[in-house]
Design a protein around this nucleic acid. Structure first.
Lengths: 185, 185
DNA sequence: GTCTATAAGAGGATAGAC
DNA sequence: GTCTATCCTCTTATAGAC
């Protein structure tokens, strides 16, 4: 069950990009781990940049879907909860890809600037929606705080001695985000 | 008022490292902006790495101070508030340096691994203290969430259309962190 | 202190045989 | 599809004149 070489390359690259960073990973290293030469990688991907986008693009798509769906959704407490939940799900379902952007934003920007801008834009739209209609600065900042908390799903691993069960991470962080937004008022 | 060349180099490097990332900034670029040649930089700093540590070290020191002072501080609600406040102050007082670590963690790790580990360790101790004595996993996660919120002081600029006044950023994010910790219980 | 010149090497990428 | 060999560029860093 050798599977697709292209797929293997993508998996190895994902592993290395997410742990060492994009810039810090050379094609030589990837080729070595896959058991190929650098040159062979170029048969499957036309450039290092293309390899990165092949990894990131599908996730961007899912991320953008969350933001698009929100467009005409009434900003009710129930809906906000639901959107936070879905945002968290996307993060948890794509931890490795998210880790690339967390560990080496500068490298990713240098490689695929426009895609990164798009990502920031999507996050911005999501944050703005969460802040509610005609938000005060305070409400905007609370929305930023809420989004920041969700990111804790990725960083908690680093800051806890023993990793927390994913279910609890999801529950506690969602609760926390909701608490920050003061949805009960 | 030409000032110290060494200091100028440090300032230019800080500016570039914090906006483009450490790896993405070459000594050629720095030299160009300072108005020197690459070779001259080496008269003032023995290596690119040394330039980075000259920038980061003082801040690490301040950061560590917060964590050390906490060591024998009783974990009362009042003290937790105070520690959060001081943590926020350190972040706000060193936004550019913090931005380096935010934009290019992978590059910083590759250059000065041990110092980075130290930083993570310090943050970990701080988070653990905030979580309180014999914390449950939920309490630990809330502490992570609280720390994550403070980081919003750095990212809010990216996610808000118009930058929020620093005073309000401080106040709202501190309130949010406290809300997450449920100090009122 | 700052310069010119250059070393030494790694990186991404291509050509062309098999 | 994978290889060997090579190109080109850029980087950090050093040597030594001024």
């Amino acid at each position: 069950m050798e599977g697709d070489t292209r797929e293997t390359i993508r998996e190895v690259a994902l592993e290395l990009f997410s742990t060492r960073g994009f810039e810090q990973t050379s094609l030589r290293e990837i080729a070595e781990r896959v058991g190929l030469t650098k040159a062979s990688l170029y048969y499957h991907f036309p450039s290092k940049q293309a390899l990165l986008t092949a990894i990131i693009d599908p996730v961007i798509e899912g991320w953008r879907t969350v933001a698009i769906d929100v467009k005409n959704l009434p900003n009710t407490p129930q809906n906000i909860r639901e959107v936070l939940r879905r945002t968290m799900d996307v993060l948890l379902a794509n931890q490795s890809v998210a880790a690339i952007m967390l560990r080496d934003p500068a490298g990713v920007v240098a490689a695929i600037g426009p895609i990164w801008e798009d990502l920031v834009d999507t996050s911005k739209r999501l944050t703005t929606w969460i802040a509610g209609p005609d938000p005060t600065t305070t409400q905007r900042l609370r929305a930023v705080a809420a989004m920041e908390i969700l990111g804790g799903a990725l960083t908690s691993v680093t800051y806890l001695d023993e990793p927390a069960p994913e279910d609890e991470v999801r529950t506690v962080l969602l609760e926390s985000a909701i608490a920050v937004l003061r949805l009960e008022d």
